[in-house]
Design a protein around this nucleic acid. Structure first.
Length: 107
DNA sequence: ACATTGACATGAT
DNA sequence: AATCATGCCAATG
């Protein structure tokens, strides 16, 4: 019954937070986790983003590691795609790394 | 119910 | 700067 009352699941919260990151800015997994009220579940953030359905409008590419590095290994298309998207938004990416000092999102 | 995995973080070496 | 080890917590097998 009330199963249809979708309470905001953790994933939904994560998506919400990620969606709130303005273009040209980035956030770390840990930051997103903390903002979604998940505490230190930085890892779960990645998992949640991995479960994103097709056709989502979530700017997952704005989420990086705490050190500004992209979470994917080199040679993967996902990483390349993320890099490109970030550059298109004006974020400088060098060797899969972003200058956090400049682009980290501060609410 | 237990073991393993994971788009991480942080501190030590 | 790079690598290793430990912590975290949920999902999955």
């Amino acid at each position: 019954m009330d199963e249809f009352e979708n309470e905001p699941t953790k994933e939904q919260k994560i998506w919400q937070v990620v969606a709130a990151i303005p273009p040209g800015n980035v956030a770390s997994y840990g930051q997103v986790a903390a903002m979604a009220g998940l505490g230190r579940q930085a890892r779960f953030v990645g998992q949640a983003l991995g479960k994103l359905p097709a056709g989502h409008s979530i700017p997952w590419h704005r989420v990086l590691r705490s050190n500004g590095q992209i979470a994917f290994p080199e040679g993967t298309e996902t990483r390349q795609l993320q890099t490109e998207k970030l550059r298109l938004e004006g974020v400088e990416v060098n060797k899969g790394k972003v200058s956090m000092k400049r682009f980290q999102w501060q609410p």
